[in-house]
Simulated assay, not measured.
Amino acid sequence: MSAHILEVAARSQWTSGVQTVNRIRDFAPFVMDEPAALGGQNEGPNPLEFLVASLNGCKGVMIPLIAREMDFKFTELSFASEGVIDVRGLMGQEGISTHFQSLDFQVTIRTEESDERLKALEDAVSARCPIYNLLREAKVALRTHWRRA
């Protein structure tokens, strides 16, 4: 395998209802479940909530990585994401997407850098963030907002 290829993997076991126990590398197992309103026991976040958290985490990797490349200084960084899903698609209604219809993503950053440098960081992160690009290429309506702390 090429040194430029990264493989990622997870192992999951269905337990009951709509719940799975998931294992990634050597980390503690974690539960994915649905709220009671969707047939679950509400014992863990659902897969789409993990995806929204993955977007936050991916930006939390890419922003510092690219900022370092740009010699861009910041002292605080936080994220908030919120997606909208039409559950009729999940329940099998034809013509309704089963994934996010839209997703709002907010970055709050404390920096003394110029607006131009901040915009350059935002553009580079959008171009290189794998989870963001996965969602964008799935044609999810992404609304991204960067603001200063």
Rank of each mutant, 00 (worst) to 15 (best):
G57R: 09
A36V: 15
E69Y: 01
E7T: 15
S54V: 03
E76T: 11
R148P: 14
M91E: 07
P130C: 06
Q93F: 02
E137R: 12
E34G: 00
V125K: 03
A10M: 11
D26K: 08
W146E: 05
A37P: 05
T111Y: 04
Q93N: 08
L103P: 09
E113C: 00
T111P: 13
V140P: 09
E137T: 11
A9M: 12
I66K: 00
G17M: 07
Q93A: 13
R128C: 01
Q19W: 05
F72G: 13
L55T: 12
R25A: 15
K59I: 05
Q19F: 11
F27S: 14
L65Q: 11
L77R: 07
E122N: 07
R23C: 14
G44T: 04
S16P: 03
R25I: 03
Y132I: 03
V84G: 08
N42L: 04
M70D: 03
L103M: 15
G92R: 05
I63Q: 07
W14R: 07
R148E: 12
F100R: 09
A124G: 04
Q41G: 11
D26Y: 08
S16F: 09
E116Y: 01
E116L: 06
E49K: 07
S2P: 15
K73L: 02
S2M: 12
R11A: 14
A36P: 13
Q106P: 04
I109E: 08
E137N: 14
I96K: 01
G60P: 13
S16R: 09
E113T: 08
L48F: 11
I66M: 00
H99M: 02
M32K: 01
Q41P: 02
H4F: 13
